[in-house]
């Protein structure tokens, strides 16, 4: 598990804010602001953080579904940041993405067969017979039946639609799958079915996942390592047990303490943060968390803390660990 399959270095994605009748740029949203991490082959790297902190943008920038503003993405030792469209299309065989709302990403006018068959065709499976065989196989793998192939997305429940999304992502045997909140919209009883399915598929097909979520229990369950994002930055990254047993960043500590646990015997000291997350169009100076941090000191307002290793495999961006 020691080879990085993916390296993200200094990734930035700023979206322009346009205003006025002429659509002139009036500012920028720093959706992802200098994020670096690697993903080891065969691991599940979780990314957590509250809405708007830049998780999806990070995922999409890796696949170059949005163009990074700055930084480098290295996949299998190959810098893919400057590949042209054609080369990128080929590469997307190996890198896939699954979205939160499978409904929005499945064409309502296409049958399941067409939806799953499409990526097969794009990547050169010309024979219809072969495709139908493969579609049947994929449906089975994700726990659906071959007769589902002729149906349309609206004829399925949320959980089943997510299974279709997964089947489509797996069609061409990818190596890395970016899972963007794949279970967030599902009911608890269905969520556990899909989580189990994803774990099974990972083992069966030697997949590597980046698993994006805002539910900390879900991320803890499925991940090997976890990165915590706040306002476009990664503030902590380590293996899951260190993160949950020994969170170092004040934001991680607050986030973990805020999760309501379904166990009346687990009473904890809650750190209630004040106020809202600031706007990424105008992030605070220095450490982006300083406006809400209970430990903030003068340096936090002025200097952005470096994201660095403070213990073995434990990265934190916070002046407390200077």
């Amino acid at each position: 598990m020691q080879n990085p399959i993916l390296k993200v270095e200094g990734l930035k994605k700023y979206y322009d804010i346009k205003g006025g009748p002429l659509g002139i740029k009036v500012g920028e949203v720093k959706a992802v602001d200098d994020v670096s991490f690697s993903v080891m082959e065969g691991e599940i790297l979780g990314i957590v953080g509250e809405s708007g902190c830049g998780k999806s943008t990070t995922g999409k920038s890796i696949l170059r579904l949005v163009e990074p503003t700055e930084g480098k993405v290295v996949f299998n030792d190959k810098d893919i940041t400057n590949l042209n469209n054609n080369e990128m299309r080929k590469l997307r065989r190996d890198m896939q993405i699954i979205f939160q709302d499978p409904y929005a990403s499945l064409n309502p006018r296409h049958t399941v067969e067409k939806i799953i068959g499409e990526p097969l065709l794009v990547h050169g499976m010309k024979s219809a017979k072969e495709r139908i065989e493969r579609i049947r196989e994929l449906l089975e793998v994700v726990g659906l039946s071959p007769y589902h192939a002729k149906r349309y997305p609206h004829q399925f429940s949320g959980g089943q639609r997510q299974r279709i999304g997964i089947a489509r992502a797996l069609a061409n045997n990818p190596k890395l799958v970016i899972c963007d909140e794949p279970v967030s919209a599902l009911d608890v009883s269905i969520q556990s079915q899909i989580l189990n399915l994803m774990e099974k598929l990972k083992d069966e097909f030697n997949l590597t996942y980046i698993f994006i979520a805002h539910d900390l229990s879900v991320v803890k369950h499925i991940s090997d390592r976890i990165g915590v994002m706040y306002l476009g930055r990664m503030v902590e990254l380590t293996n899951k047990d260190s993160l949950y047993d020994n969170p170092k960043h004040p934001y991680t500590q607050a986030l973990l303490s805020a999760v309501p646990l379904p166990d009346p015997d687990l009473r904890r000291d809650r750190i209630i943060l004040k106020g809202d997350v600031p706007s990424p169009a105008n992030p605070p100076s220095g450490c982006a968390f300083h406006t809400r941090c209970p430990y903030a000191s003068d340096i936090c307002k002025e200097v952005r803390p470096e994201f660095k290793s403070v213990e073995d495999n434990h990265f934190v961006a916070c002046h407390l660990y200077g």
């Binding site: 009911d187 009883s189 989580l195 803890k220 949950y244 646990l261």
Partner: peptide, 22 residues
């Protein structure tokens, strides 16, 4: 339902799941 929840303080291999749909 309670068994299906991933627990933050436990290390479970496989989650329990209720079969079928809601």
């Amino acid at each position: 339902l309670i068994k299906s929840l991933p627990k933050i303080h436990e290390r479970e291999q496989k989650l329990y799941s209720i079969p079928g749909i809601v």
